[in-house]
Design a protein around this nucleic acid. Structure first.
Lengths: 222, 222
DNA sequence: GCCGAACCGTAACGTACGGTACGGTTCTCC
DNA sequence: GGAGAACCGTACCGTACGTTACGGTTCGGC
């Protein structure tokens, strides 16, 4: 083996390597298609030789980039399930707003496009990594909230996974697929807040226990 | 111009050309990545020269393929809005089941992956075509049903587009993004029927007028 | 100050693939 | 049955890009 090891799955990239991965991300967002090794080397002001020494090959670089972005998104972490309806609503609304913010960000769009393109071929499970750190990670983080709500009698459902998937649908609707397909759809902070509130109210209407949500009016527009 | 015109946007492809486009579709589903002009010519038993004469270039071939598949999907067409709750429920459930069947089909997955990959670059609006014939087409077809339901007092909403987007989310949930990212998720006919019924009941719970849906129980699993 | 490791910049290589050219074959029309 | 168009199969060309190689530079350790 060479003196400098190829970056392993569990290794934390060095600061310089992180800069390279950030260059990949920025290039991915700006150029989309033209994500060549030469372009990455130029953007990151490093040599291609170094790229290959650190990441093995192009797939390794992309995989490291996806992991790097995933680690960054995983930062926020708020469990501590509470027991009153207002806190539950806030918690759900916060999740919804965060999720909408993530999926509508240029970085997420570019990353998902890349992973989806890769899912077409067999090699290197980029799609699996994105799924594990996106859709499934948020599901795992939301589950204790839902189950705490059920134990407090605020929610009624048989399977938390099914309940989460409904929430997921109410929040995301057609946003992600439209953005991925190139639809010019901008979500302002206000729209995200309103959509998050609407989805949360709808979810509570469907899964709320004895307690009824404030008013399920339909005032928000797309 | 050559004797044989390049296939125009409005032209119906000839039978032989349709066979070529079907070859593209099958190749796309089976090989995913390896959609080269040489492979298409081999699969379709035609020469590359013919491909270029008929479709101009690779993008033209892909565009024609997307249009061809879109025309095929657009076959079923059922409006005739009725006025009782049972018919409304059936109509919604039918839409939901059809949509789930479409988005979970290998052809749709491959086609959307291709269009999403293309959306990353600027050239040739494949993503727009897929959106127009998928998401937006079904929205336009469902709108009269929703508005007829509202006029009959069966549904309550301010904006049919917003109502449709909620229905869209309740039906699709995380299915499409998971499939696009390579998750092995198979939907049997029974599961599709149950999911369609669940989504319809949930939608009626949220948007039903004075009439209350039968029982909003939560028995279906994912 | 010297040595070697790490790294930068760039040139070079091999291949895959989009696109073109061309000879041979089939089909159509007269 | 002869001319020409359409088409098949294949060889060919040019380019883009992943990957490798190499000379020059910086930097930490002694």
């Amino acid at each position: 083996m060479a003196a400098t090891q190829i970056i392993a799955d569990t290794d934390e990239p060095t600061a310089r390597q992180q800069a390279v991965l950030d260059a990949v991300l920025s290039l991915m967002v700006e150029e989309g298609d033209q994500l060549t090794m030469t372009a990455v080397a130029r953007r990151a002001s490093c040599s291609k030789e170094t790229l290959y020494k650190w990441f093995g090959d192009r797939d390794g670089l992309l995989t490291a980039t996806v992991r790097w972005q995933a680690a960054r998104v995983r930062a926020g972490r708020y469990d501590r399930p509470t027991l009153d309806i207002a806190a539950l609503r806030d918690s759900l609304k916060g999740f919804a707003a965060t999720w909408l913010t993530v999926i509508s960000s240029p970085t997420s769009i570019a990353l998902n496009r890349l992973a989806i393109g890769h899912a077409a071929s067999r090699k290197s499970n980029l799609g699996g990594i994105v799924l594990a750190n996106g859709r499934f990670a948020i599901g795992e983080r939301l589950r204790p909230v839902l189950e705490a709500g059920r134990e407090a009698g605020l929610l009624t459902f048989a399977d938390s996974e099914t309940a989460f998937r409904t929430f997921f649908g109410l929040v995301g609707r057609d946003v992600q697929i439209r953005l991925l397909l190139g639809d010019t759809l901008t979500l302002s902070r206000d729209e995200i807040e309103r959509d998050a509130a609407r989805a949360t109210d709808q979810f509570l209407t469907l899964y709320g226990g004895a307690v009824s949500p404030p008013q399920p009016e339909e005032t928000t527009r797309s």
